[in-house]
Structures are given as structure tokens and as C-alpha cells.
């Protein structure tokens, strides 16, 4: 009997079905917990799902490569999803055309600050080269940041987690900081949250209002694009 179970397990651990199913189950469970906790950014469902799967894989002794053989079917959709970001961006640019100049200038400041501060602080505190390269695009939205990390020689998986943590930091501490600095204009609040902490920041901005949410979404899209152009140039210039 135990031999049979072991045979079944050996088979399951090797088929792509396990990685795929485990990912979806963990995602459902994590989303449920997050909703029960009133969608607090601290219990971000992506982070929760990752922790659950890492524990599951460590407990069962399945290595990452075998897991990814199944999970890659989900991972593949990141490409077309990134392309689809053009749709909300197109809509918001139409609505927000009036503040175009202010948005462009503030965004340029924000994008440069995001990349330069991450690289500068990590470098000053003695991080390794590949860690610095993985941190550089941390304020861009995850699919774009991972693409940049891969392009410049960082570690896309590490970047994915760093981007999530950046979003959580921005969404939990950002509104407090903006209040301290007396930034009261919802356009400025939204833009700041979107540039610094992408989709998670945008979700937080939407909670404070529609204007802040729209500017945050716009900032996330444009910052993704700006970071993709800026970071490879910055890295080439700083590290060569």
C-alpha cells in the first residue's frame, strides 16, 4: 500500500500538473485570507501565495525547476498581460491630458529617484552586483521590472519579490509620509504612490479616491515605460 502511494507521488511530483495546480490552490487560499483581512497591503496575496508554495516545495523536496515546469504555463501569460497594460494607459492618458506637462516632469523626477536611490543605497551598504541589478527596477510594475532585470543581468525571481515588497512598503507607509509632507492634492498623492509602488500603490490610491487612483494608474504605466528606458542606461553608465 505505502509503495503504491509512493509510486503515485513520484509520478505526480514529476508532472507539470502538480506545479500548476499548487499555484492555483495557493492563489485561491491567499486571496481568501487577504479578503478576510479587509485587503490590507500587509497580507498581500502574491506574497502569501509565494510563502505557501515555498513551504510546500521545501516540505515535499520538490525543487524549483520541477515546480516551474508546471507553473510556466501561468508565467507565460505575463508577456501578453504586459502588452494589455496599453489599454488602461490609453484610456487614462485621454482623461488626464490637461496635466500632461506637470505629470511628465514629476514622473521624470520620480523615475530617476526610484532607480538611483535603490542602486545608491544598496551599493553604499555593500550589496553584490547582481543584487543591485535586481533592485534597480524595483518601482516598476512586476512584469516590466522582471523583464528589465533579465535584460541588465539581475535575477528576475529576486526582482519579482523585491517589487512586491516595494509595493507593500509604499502602500502602507506612503499615505502617512505624504500627510507629514502636507502633500494634499490628490493628483500629487496618486502620482507619488503610482511611481514608487506600482499596482499595490495604485490599489491603495484608489481607496482614497477616483482622482488619486487614476493618476496612480497612469503613473504606474508611464513609470514602467520610463524605467525600462532609464535603468539599462543608468546601469551601463554607473557600473562600467
Amino acid at each position: 500500500m505505502t509503495a503504491d502511494v509512493r509510486d503515485v507521488w513520484t509520478y505526480l511530483a514529476d508532472t507539470p500538473l502538480l506545479g500548476l495546480t499548487a499555484t492555483l490552490i495557493a492563489w485561491d487560499a491567499a486571496s481568501w485570507i487577504w479578503r478576510r483581512a479587509r485587503m490590507t497591503p500587509l497580507l498581500n496575496p502574491v506574497l502569501l501565495a509565494i510563502v505557501m508554495i515555498v513551504i510546500f516545495l521545501s516540505a515535499t523536496g520538490i525543487d524549483y525547476r520541477r515546480y516551474f515546469a508546471g507553473a510556466q504555463f501561468i508565467h507565460f501569460l505575463l508577456g501578453p498581460a504586459t502588452v494589455a497594460l496599453a489599454i488602461p494607459l490609453y484610456r487614462q492618458i485621454h482623461a488626464l491630458r490637461r496635466s500632461a506637462l506637470a505629470v511628465t516632469i514629476a514622473l521624470a523626477f520620480g523615475s530617476v529617484t526610484a532607480a538611483a536611490s535603490a542602486v545608491g543605497i544598496a551599493w553604499a551598504l555593500g550589496a553584490s552586483r547582481s543584487t543591485i541589478l535586481s533592485l534597480a527596477p524595483k518601482s516598476a510594475t512586476t512584469p516590466i521590472a522582471m523583464g528589465i532585470a533579465k535584460e541588465i543581468g539581475g535575477l528576475p525571481s529576486l526582482t519579482a519579490v523585491l517589487v512586491l515588497l516595494t509595493g507593500i512598503v509604499g502602500a502602507t507607509m506612503g499615505p502617512w509620509l505624504l500627510a507629514k509632507l502636507k502633500v494634499a492634492d490628490p493628483r500629487a498623492q496618486g502620482l507619488a504612490l503610482g511611481v514608487a509602488s506600482h499596482g499595490i500603490g495604485t490599489a491603495r490610491a484608489l481607496q482614497s479616491g477616483e482622482v488619486a487612483g487614476a493618476f496612480s494608474g497612469l503613473a504606474m504605466g508611464l513609470n514602467g515605460l520610463a524605467t525600462a528606458i532609464l535603468v539599462p542606461l543608468l546601469v551601463r553608465w554607473l557600473l562600467n
Binding site: V46, I74, L77, L158
Partner: peptide, 15 residues
């Protein structure tokens, strides 16, 4: 979209 980050994020176990 958030679900799509999970497979890559799990890769953090390597690091």
C-alpha cells in the same frame, strides 16, 4: 495579473 507573478516569485527560494 497578480496571480501571474507567483511562479517567478517562488523562484526566490533559490536566493
Amino acid at each position: 495579473l497578480s496571480l501571474l507573478f507567483v511562479p517567478a516569485g517562488v523562484g526566490v527560494m533559490v536566493y
